[in-house]
Each structure stands twice: as C-alpha cells, then as structure tokens.
Design a protein around this nucleic acid. Structure first.
Lengths: 138, 138
DNA sequence: CTGCATCCAACGGGATACTG
DNA sequence: CAGTATCCCGTTGGATGCAG
C-alpha cells in the first residue's frame, strides 16, 4: 500500500513527524481528511480569520463576513466550537451578549490560513484565466 | 498583496489595498471564498500533495490516496486542471499513459498545505477530545 | 441580541457497470 | 490504463419565521 519513496527532491518534510508527506496522506488519509474537513466548510476559514484579532460578537461576525446567513454562521460557530477551535463566552445580560474567541490551537493555524488566503489573492486572476481557457476548449 | 487583477470576464469587483486580513475577508469574502473552494474539495489536498514530488500517473494516485474512488479522482483531477493547478500530459501510447504534474502556482501552495497537514496531525487528538467532550455535554 | 426550527434546492460523493 | 455513465442518497447551505 505504501508507495515507495520515489525521489522527493525539493519539498518540505512533515516537520514534527519526520515522515514523508505523501506517506502521511497515503497511510492516514482517513483521519487526516477527517480533521481537514472541519476547517473545510465554506465559511470556516472566514470565521477563523475574522475572530483572529480578539473576542468577537455574533453580530460583528455576521456583519464582517460578507454573504453569510444567520443559520450558517451559527452552524459554523457550533462546528468550530465543537472541535475546540473556538471558545464561546455567554454574558448573562439583557440583551444577551456572546463572544467568540480562538483557542490556542486555532491561533496556531492563523499563519497558515493567512498564507492560504495570500496565495488565493495572488493567483485568483491566474485561476480565473486558466478556467476560462479550459472552458473555452472543452 | 495588491492583485494583478487581469480583469477576467465574470467579475467586476474592485481590488483592495494591502489591508488587514480580516478586512480582506470582510470586503472580499466572495471572490476569496470562491477561490478557496477549489482547494477545499474532500480530495483536492490529497491529490495536490501526492503529486508534489513529480509527474504521477492516474493509477499511482488512485493507489496512494487511500479511499478515493475512480470517479472522485477523475473529478478532482479535472477540477484542479481546470483551475490551472495541475498539468495533464497524455502519452498516445498503448496502453495509454497520462501524467499529472503540479503547475508553478500549485507548487507555491505546497508549503502551506504541508503546514495545514502538520497542524492537523499535531492536533487531531485534541480535536477528537474536544469533540467528545462537547458531545457528552450537549 | 442570539439563536433554533423548518422547508427545500443544489451539490458532493459513493457504488457499480461500461469503454476507447 | 484511464477514464465515462448512471443511479442515488446524505449533506450543505439559502430563505424565512419563531423564541429566549
């Protein structure tokens, strides 16, 4: 099952484990995919980044994340909270006030997310072009 | 962070300056989400990483990515190719031989993907724990 | 203000079978 | 070897309304 270590020329290795990334994918695809899917929701990254600079209230998130519905915000928030990425604080006041903050675990992810977004920003023009060309041919 | 914005057909959104990431999310959620979703498929990251060390054949990918179906491999491959992340080379031989390789754009993404996977590896235990606890309470 | 409930459409994705 | 073609169902996610 494990594919031989064909020359892995440039690439960075999985830092902590010392294993080859391809092997990790190959032998642990399920758990990895499983975890990755929690960050993979349509709005998860947006929420994670929007909450990165400190405790944020529900309505703030709703306003800052363009296009999200109340329902999806709630679902995304619950999902992230369940996975231990967000901490939810309820202030028993009237009107109610709820604040969401990243956990340490989620904060560790921040730079990676930033890289991802940065990459997307830099290449979305090229991606759109590539797609247009592909569609024109096919 | 200023994008080249090589104005492509379907969009008329305005560009942004180099602001805070949260602002980018806030004001450009749509295009960003749009791009991010191409990498967000259940198998996309697996394919991208599995193809990182050089040209890979269809069957190699099928074997190395645990649990993927032929159909999903094809769909994922097409999607990534369409977005300009994969290059597909067909060798007109018998039997047919098709090789997939990352484009430069995709190669730039590699270290970020590695970070993501590494993070997932490091925290999946904690995530599982958090989830179990959450479910026990609710 | 912060949600939850319900309905419903669209899409993703698995299983299986067939083909150049 | 490298796909395509169907069928089919579970999930995602949008819209709207109600509630603590």
């Amino acid at each position: 099952m494990s594919q031989s270590h064909t020359d892995v020329s440039d690439e960075a290795r999985a830092g902590s484990g010392g294993q080859d990334v391809a092997d990790v994918i190959a032998t642990e695809a399920c758990p990895l995919t499983e975890v990755l899917e929690h960050v993979a929701g349509k709005w998860s990254i947006g929420v994670l980044v929007a909450a990165a600079h400190g405790p944020v209230r529900f309505t703030e998130l709703e306003r800052s994340i363009n296009g999200i519905s109340r329902r999806m915000l709630t679902l995304t928030l619950r999902k992230l909270e369940r996975d231990g990425l967000l901490h939810r604080t309820v202030h028993p006041t009237v009107p109610p006030k709820v604040e969401y903050a990243l956990t340490d675990m989620a904060r560790e992810l921040h730079s990676t997310l930033t890289s991802l977004i940065d990459w997307a920003e830099r290449h979305r023009g090229a991606i759109a072009t590539a797609r247009a060309r592909y569609d024109r041919v096919n």
